[in-house]
C-alpha cells in the first residue's frame, strides 16, 4: 500500500523543498478569510435575498425558464395547490413522493394530490436505516411518478434550485421520479453562486456544514448523441418551478 507520508514527501521534494511550508495567507483563495468576514458576507447575502425578494424572484423565473424549468407564478397558496393538482392530473400520477419542507404543508400539498386520486408519501423515515427499509424506500422513489420539494435556496443568476439532503428530504425525491416539482417562496433566492458558497463556507466555519448539497438547474439532459440536446437521460424529464407570490 502506498504510504501517505511517502507520497506527500515526494510532492514536497518535487516542489524543490525539504519540508512542508505553510502557504502564504495573502492569496486569491478564500481559505484564509477569517470567520467574521465569512459571517458578514453570509449575513449580507441573506439580507439581500429578503430585501430584494421580488426582484430576485423575477430574475430567478427568467433564468429558470431559459434552462428548461416550466415556471409557474402563483399569487397565493391556493394557486400553488391548483398548479400541483393540474400537473398530477396531466401526468396521470398514481404515486407521489414529497419532502417535509414547511411550504408544502402550508399550501396543503397532501390534499392537492389526493384530490386527484393519487397517493402521497413523505420521504421522512423513522430513524430506522436497516437495509430492508432502505431498499424499500429506494424502490418507492423509482416507482413514484412525481417528486415534490420546497427549496433550501435558489440562485437567480443561473436558475438553480439548491437542496441539502437530510431526513425528510431524500436524495432521490428530486432525482428518480420522471417529474420534479419545486415550490419556491420569496426570500429564498440568492443572487449568485458567490453568495451560496459564502454561506456554505460560513456554515462550515460554524461546524454546521450540511452532509451534501445538490444544485439543480433544469431537467436532466445530455447532448452526447450528435450534439443534440435531449432531456431526461437519467434524472427527471420534466421539472416545474412554482413561485409563490408575496401573500
Amino acid at each position: 500500500m502506498a504510504d501517505r507520508a511517502k507520497f506527500i514527501s515526494a510532492v514536497t521534494a518535487s516542489l524543490g523543498r525539504s519540508e512542508i511550508l505553510a502557504p502564504p495567507t495573502e492569496t486569491a483563495t478564500a481559505a484564509f478569510e477569517d470567520a467574521d468576514t465569512a459571517k458578514s458576507i453570509a449575513e449580507r447575502a441573506l439580507a439581500t435575498a429578503s430585501e430584494r425578494s421580488s426582484e430576485l424572484a423575477n430574475r430567478m423565473a427568467e433564468a429558470a425558464a431559459v434552462i428548461g424549468w416550466k415556471v409557474h407564478r402563483s399569487a397565493n397558496r391556493e394557486d400553488v395547490a391548483d398548479v400541483i393538482t393540474s400537473i398530477c392530473e396531466q401526468k396521470q400520477a398514481t404515486s407521489v413522493l414529497r419532502s417535509t419542507h414547511e411550504v408544502l404543508t402550508q399550501i396543503g400539498v397532501d390534499t392537492a394530490v389526493t384530490n386527484t386520486g393519487a397517493s402521497i408519501a413523505t420521504t421522512e423515515h423513522s430513524g430506522d436505516t436497516s437495509s430492508d427499509l432502505v431498499d424499500e424506500s429506494k424502490a418507492a422513489a423509482f416507482k413514484a411518478d412525481i417528486g415534490i420539494t420546497g427549496v433550501d435556496y435558489a440562485i437567480a443568476e443561473s436558475g438553480t434550485v439548491v437542496l441539502h439532503p437530510r431526513s425528510g428530504l431524500s436524495r432521490l425525491v428530486s432525482l428518480a421520479p420522471p417529474t420534479h416539482i419545486a415550490v419556491l417562496r420569496p426570500g429564498e433566492v440568492l443572487e449568485s453562486l458567490d453568495e451560496l458558497f459564502a454561506m456554505e463556507r460560513n456554515d462550515f466555519l460554524l461546524g454546521d456544514l450540511a452532509g451534501s448539497m445538490n444544485l439543480i438547474s433544469g431537467p436532466s439532459k445530455t447532448a452526447d448523441i450528435e450534439g443534440t440536446t435531449v432531456t431526461g437521460i437519467h434524472g427527471p424529464l420534466e421539472v416545474h418551478l412554482v413561485i409563490l407570490g408575496n401573500d
Binding site: I67, I155, S158, G159, L209, S212, M213, N214, L215, S217
Partner: peptide, 10 residues
C-alpha cells in the same frame, strides 16, 4: 452558465 447538476458531498 451552470450544468444541470452540481453535487457536493462531504
Amino acid at each position: 452558465r451552470i450544468s444541470t447538476y452540481v453535487t457536493m458531498v462531504n
